[in-house]
Amino acid sequence: MTQFSKEVMHVGEMASGAALTVPVYRLKGQSDAPSVYIQANMHGAEVQGNAVIFQLLELLRNTQIKGDITLVPYANPVGCNHKNGEYTLGRFDPITGVNWNRMYHFDESIIKPFVRDSIGKDDKTIEANFKALMIDSIEQKLDHNIFGLTTGQRIAYQLQRLAHQADLVLDLHTGPISSKHLYCPEYAVESAKYFDIPHTLLIPNAFDGALDEATFCPWWKLEEAFAELGIKFSISSNTLNKESFTVELGSQEQIDLDVALEDAKSILSYLQYKGVIDTSAYQPKKMTRFACYLKDYKAFYSPMGGMVDYLAEFGKPLKAGEPLARILRMDNYHFEEKGDADPLHYVSLDHEVIPILHFASASVNQGTELYKVFTEFFILEE
């Protein structure tokens, strides 16, 4: 029988004094297999991850669990309640304007002193000490910051404290109107093949404030610092197994429980590969998987204002010159056969791309980000 627990974590307070809380579900593993942390809904409109966590809990009821699993839906109680009319905003802290997923913490200056103090110690001791150091650095931020924290930092740091206790971290997101894609650290590319996600973005060892970076960059930097001294310390070994991903589940402002079930099975395929669960029930689907490096993931901005008909199909290579979208400009319409300008303006690119997501609205200003696309992409697996 799986040992299950639920708690409510207090992450802040509203002006009225009402508590901001986050539910935390824990499943206790039966061995020292890798532990997992999964969260969803850091951005307010990105709700599909909550449905995926529900389906994961349902599937895990009847699964032998070897490693501890922690699941956190509704990770940002401010963002998911930030409504404007019929729309959920919740991408940016309305007070500071900062992206909710850019407030996590990593101080690279802790790495080299730690390495110097760890020479001669075995990998498991180094792992335990470094994990304790990262957790302590977060607790220092939470409990001993004399100038205080913003609302977003206080929420992010408490989530990050949970994430640092795990070996594998999955942060569930969605795009505006989007295909499924995966943000994957370059060293973990083999693991990308175990998710049922056809598009993988390979990201470098650079911290920009996101949760996946905040949890894999410290370990990656640690490995590099040991390597500079000629000492082998591999975070992708079976002994250590440190990986973090941002999992993009599709489009925002909607949930689909049937699709969420498939997404949950995809995650369990990865967890089975990593030895977190003991079952043969979940295997990755056969599909063509494309990848590109983060530097080659480009945004295309609208050359004019207007009403956009998004033409390009997600996930399939779009040849150079084929239309990405067409923009309707009724101010250019003339009843006469010939007018001064065409009311329909087709936009295309001069090189082949794979469209991944596009802006949520058909109404755009000049300079609005229309699409994000893979350029210089390659096949990861067929």
Rank of each mutant, 00 (worst) to 15 (best):
Q3W: 00
V8R: 02
H10N: 07
V11Y: 02
E13F: 11
E13I: 00
A15G: 03
G17L: 08
A18K: 09
R26C: 08
G29Q: 07
Q30F: 05
S31A: 09
S31E: 08
A33V: 04
I38D: 04
H43R: 09
H43L: 07
V47T: 14
Q48M: 15
N50M: 06
A51H: 03
L57K: 14
L60K: 15
N62M: 10
K66Q: 06
K66A: 03
D68Q: 10
I69Y: 01
K83E: 07
K83V: 00
Y87L: 15
T88Y: 06
L89R: 10
G90W: 02
G90D: 03
G90T: 04
R91E: 02
F92Q: 10
P94F: 02
I95Y: 10
W100E: 09
N101L: 04
R102K: 13
Y104Q: 08
P113D: 09
P113Y: 09
F114Y: 15
D123G: 01
K124W: 04
E127F: 05
A132V: 02
L133T: 15
I135V: 15
D136M: 09
E139V: 00
Q140S: 10
D143M: 06
L149S: 09
I155M: 02
L159I: 07
L168M: 10
L168A: 05
D171A: 05
P176V: 00
I177Y: 12
S179G: 04
H181A: 00
P185F: 08
E186P: 03
E186V: 01
Y187T: 03
A210N: 12
L211Y: 05
C217R: 13
P218Q: 07
A225F: 06
A227H: 07
N238I: 03
K242P: 11
T246I: 12
T246D: 06
L249K: 03
S251V: 00
Q254L: 14
Y273C: 08
K274F: 04
V276A: 08
V276T: 12
S280E: 11
S280H: 06
Q283A: 05
K286A: 12
K295T: 09
A299E: 13
G306S: 01
L311S: 08
G315K: 02
P317C: 10
L318F: 11
R329Q: 14
R329S: 03
M330W: 10
Y333M: 05
H334A: 10
D340W: 01
A341E: 15
D342S: 14
D342T: 06
V347G: 00
S348W: 06
L349H: 02
V353F: 00
H358Y: 15
F359Y: 15
A360S: 12
S363A: 13
Q366F: 12
L370C: 11
V373F: 10
T375P: 00
E381P: 04
E381L: 12
E382A: 13
